[in-house]
C-alpha cells in the first residue's frame, strides 16, 4: 500500500470494507425471502465476524464455526477453523478488523455521526480491553466444550448470548422477513437486541467499542499482530516525534512505543498521518523497495515493537 493522504486512506478503506461486505453477503434474495444461502461456499470461513445465518452470507463466520465444531459430538478441537484463523492472522493480523469486517464497517459508519462528543481515551479502557480475551476463553471455547445437552452437543454460547453482529446481520433481517420466527422471539432475542443497541449507541461516541473490548475474533487476530507478514515499522532515524500518529489513532494506541499492539486494527490512519514516512507498513517498505526513487528512509535502520 503506497502512502496516501489520511482522507484518501479513509475513503479507500470505506470502499474496501463496503465492497468486501457486499461481496461476501451477496445472496440478496435471502433478505426478501427470509431464508439463508445453502450452497457449497458455506463450508468456507470468511475472515470477519459475519454470521452464517445472515440471509445474504455466502460463507461462514469463523467464531460461529469454531463453536460449532467444539460443541459437536465428534470433535473437541477444530483444526480447520484454528488453521484458517492462524493463516489469516499470519498474513495480515488485525488488518481483517480494520478493512474486511462487516460489523467493523457498521461501527465506523456510526462513529461518523457529527455533533456528538468523541472519546478516545477512557479511564476503564485498559481494563475493558481484557474483556475480549475472557469472552474468547469462556464463551467461545470453554462453555461449548464443557457443557453439552443430552445429545452430547454444546451450545454456541457466544453466538447465543452475546454476538451483536449476529443479531444485526441475521436476527433482525430474518425476523423482519419471517413471521414464524417473529412469533418465536422472546426474552433471549430482547437481551441480544439490547446488547446490539448498546453497541450501536456507544459506537457514535467511542470508536469501535465492540472491536476494542468484546470481539473474540479480534482477540485471536490481535495475538498475531506482532508476528504477521503485514506489520507496522517505525524508523527511529527519520521519526521527528511529532506525535501525529498517536493523535490520529482513534483507538488510543501508543503508536510510538507499540506499533504492533494487539489492539491495533491497522486502519492505516497513523501511517498516513506520519509526515516523514518514518512510520510505515511492511507493505509500504516492499513497494518502496520496488520504487527506489519514492522510498522514505529506505537506507535507515528500522525498529519494530516486538
Amino acid at each position: 500500500m503506497a502512502k496516501v493522504s489520511l482522507k484518501k486512506n479513509k475513503i479507500r478503506r470505506a470502499w474496501v470494507q463496503s465492497g468486501f461486505t457486499v461481496l461476501t453477503n451477496s445472496h440478496a434474495s435471502g433478505f426478501l425471502q427470509g431464508k439463508i444461502y445453502t450452497g457449497p461456499a458455506k463450508a468456507v470461513c470468511v475472515p470477519g465476524l459475519n454470521c452464517y445465518s445472515c440471509p445474504g452470507a455466502l460463507g461462514s463466520c469463523p467464531v460461529g464455526s469454531l463453536q460449532a465444531v467444539l460443541g459437536s459430538r465428534e470433535f473437541s478441537m477444530s483444526f480447520y477453523v484454528l488453521g484458517f484463523l492462524a493463516a489469516a492472522g499470519a498474513l495480515v493480523g488485525r488488518l481483517v478488523c480494520g478493512w474486511l469486517c462487516p460489523f467493523g464497517l457498521v461501527q465506523d459508519i456510526l462513529h461518523k455521526i457529527p455533533f456528538v462528543r468523541k472519546y478516545t481515551k477512557m479511564r476503564a479502557d485498559r481494563v475493558l480491553r481484557w474483556l475480549k480475551y475472557a469472552i474468547l476463553a469462556v464463551f467461545v471455547i470453554a462453555l461449548p466444550v464443557w457443557i453439552s445437552d443430552v445429545t452430547g452437543m454444546g451450545d454456541p454460547w457466544y453466538c447465543k448470548y452475546i454476538c451483536p453482529s449476529g443479531t444485526l446481520m441475521a436476527g433482525w433481517p430474518l425476523l423482519a422477513a419471517n413471521a414464524s420466527l417473529r412469533r418465536a422471539a422472546g426474552a433471549l432475542f430482547a437481551w441480544k437486541s439490547a446488547i446490539l443497541i448498546a453497541v450501536l449507541l456507544l459506537s457514535i461516541s467511542i470508536y469501535r467499542p465492540f472491536c476494542r473490548w468484546a470481539c473474540p475474533l479480534g482477540a485471536i487476530y490481535g495475538l498475531m499482530n506482532r508476528a504477521s507478514f503485514y506489520r507496522l515499522e517505525l524508523d527511529r532515524d527519520t521519526c521527528i516525534d511529532c506525535g501525529r500518529c498517536e493523535a490520529a489513532c482513534k483507538l488510543g494506541i501508543p503508536v510510538l512505543t507499540d506499533q504492533n499492539s494487539a489492539d491495533c486494527i491497522r486502519c492505516g490512519d497513523c501511517t498516513n498521518a506520519c509526515p516523514t514516512g518514518a512510520l510505515h507498513s511492511s507493505l509500504d517498505a516492499l513497494l518502496a523497495q520496488k520504487r527506489p526513487d519514492t522510498s522514505h528512509g529506505q537506507t535507515h535502520k528500522s525498529q519494530s515493537s516486538d
Binding site: 470461513c45 452464517y52 460461529g64 447465543k160
Partner: peptide, 23 residues
C-alpha cells in the same frame, strides 16, 4: 481430513436459532 468441514457446513446451511436469539 478429520471431516470438520462437514460439521461447519451442516451448521451453516440451517438457520442458527441461537445465533439470531431464538434458540
Amino acid at each position: 481430513y478429520r471431516g470438520e468441514i462437514a460439521v461447519v457446513f451442516q451448521k451453516a446451511i440451517i438457520i442458527c436459532l441461537e445465533c439470531i436469539g431464538i434458540g
